Simulated assay, not measured.
Amino acid sequence: MLIVCEGAKTEVNYFEAIRKDKRLPTAHIAVMPSDYGTSPLQIVQYAIDRFNQTKEFDRVYVVFDRDDHLTYHNALAKAGATDKALKNDGGVKVPFVAIPSVPNFELWVLLHFRDVLAPIHRDVVYAELKKPAAYPGYAKNSVTVFTDTKELIPAAKARAEALRDSFNAHDGNDPYTDVDVLTGELLKIAGRFN
């Protein structure tokens, strides 16, 4: 599995923490930031190029935020067009999955603590996270976010699913995240190694 993230630390630290906590081998899961930049389209292109270097992956995930990125919608379209268009070294068509968050990755973290039912600016997400009823110790780039919140994943997953029932990633304004999908995939793989 190849996971290419927008952030060099926040998202990478989160997914690496899952990998380490669940003792998933690095041979099976590569988590990295995009070397091309942080725009969603650059992330998708980097993941395509990184995949093509070795073709050793069975699945590719691209993790990016809506924020104010101008290439957000193009990245969703390109990821969709790339899904099952690439073949790995075994000749198998590879799922290529966008994991968008609107407005940002931190929405996923906030969903561990409360519902978000209306459009929300990223600055408000951070402010809400730091409230005493949520995660007052939250800091961007922290390596403990997964460990600190993993017991609340079922509630966050239910909230993320409810958002998907009401909104879609393509709108780009309403709160939305697919981080639960990727988190679930990693936890499912972890179950195979236990």
Rank of each mutant, 00 (worst) to 15 (best):
M1E: 08
L2I: 13
I3Y: 06
I3D: 08
I3K: 08
V4E: 02
C5V: 10
C5H: 11
K9E: 11
T10R: 03
T10Q: 04
V12Y: 07
F15L: 04
E16H: 03
A17G: 03
R23P: 00
P25Q: 04
T26C: 06
A27I: 05
A27R: 14
I29R: 00
P33G: 06
S34I: 10
S34P: 10
D35R: 15
T38S: 15
T38Q: 14
P40S: 09
P40H: 12
I43L: 10
Q45M: 09
Q45C: 05
A47N: 10
I48H: 11
I48R: 14
N52D: 10
Q53Y: 05
Q53T: 13
T54L: 10
T54H: 12
T54M: 02
R59A: 13
V60M: 09
V62R: 11
V63N: 06
V63Q: 06
R66F: 04
D67F: 05
T71I: 08
T71D: 07
H73E: 11
N74M: 08
A75P: 08
A75C: 09
A75I: 07
A77F: 00
A79Q: 01
G80Y: 01
G80W: 02
D83G: 07
A85D: 10
L86Q: 15
K87H: 09
D89F: 03
K93I: 00
A98F: 04
A98T: 04
S101P: 02
P103Q: 08
F105I: 06
E106H: 04
V109D: 01
L110D: 01
L110P: 01
F113G: 01
F113Q: 02
R114K: 15
V116T: 03
A118W: 00
A118C: 02
D123N: 14
V124Q: 12
E128V: 01
P132C: 06
Y135H: 12
G137N: 12
G137C: 04
S142W: 00
S142P: 01
T144A: 14
V145P: 01
F146R: 01
T147W: 00
T149K: 06
K150N: 09
A155F: 11
A156L: 04
K157Q: 13
K157H: 11
A160W: 10
E161K: 14
E161D: 12
E161V: 15
L163M: 10
L163P: 09
S166T: 13
H170V: 11
H170C: 02
H170M: 10
D171V: 06
P175D: 07
Y176T: 05
V179M: 07
V181R: 11
G184K: 04
G184N: 03
G184M: 05
K188F: 08
R192V: 06
F193E: 03
N194I: 10
